[in-house]
Amino acid sequence: MLGLIGRKVGMTQVFDDRGVLTPVTVIKIDGNVVVSQRTTDKNGYNACVLGAEAIKPSKVTKPYAGQFKESGEPKRILMEMRDYDQEVVVGDTLGVDLFKEIAFVDIEGTSKGKGFQGAMKRHGFAGGNATHGSKFKRGLGGTGMAATPSRVFKGTKMPGRMGGEKTSVQNLRVVKIDEDKQVLMVKGAVPGPRQGVVIVKKAKKK
């Protein structure tokens, strides 16, 4: 796996190499540093711990700051990336140029919180007629059987909290990479609000 931590800046449109106006999401990669390495001998698995975004050393607790002893300044975001493809050493700084040769990426983020939503919006239920004297409009319908089992099964799709959970989008085309601005542009939308933390990975299925 190959990945970096970034922040969604927002969406805009750019002309791609064929001169077609393409909708893109701009992702800022801010100072990714290799904090430590997990190895099979020591930890039982291979991984690379990445940190991103500087934070004031006075703002962090001592146990948290202790993790950055080898790599330097403490970072706001910490994340483990399993089986990192690139050869890295603790203290290395990684930038967007990592994705130079990569055409497609997968992006993980936390979707926008939608609050308490009904079954139609949350699970795509059809609902009933809006007109023609309908008395069943946006309800969810039946939730179970009759006397047997005489209960509602766990996990039945019902209204509730929607959004604010980890969401991935796969196979987004990398339209442009700007090394001066440390910015990555991918075609299409990315989960989460502007300024939300996203993980950009090399596409799994391409």
Binding site: V9, G10, T12, V14, F15, V26, K28, D178, K181, V183, M185
Partner: peptide, 12 residues
């Protein structure tokens, strides 16, 4: 937002 403005200005 300034990043977006800069990207758009580049394209114009």
């Amino acid at each position: 937002m300034d990043i977006i403005k800069a990207i758009e200005a580049e394209q114009m």
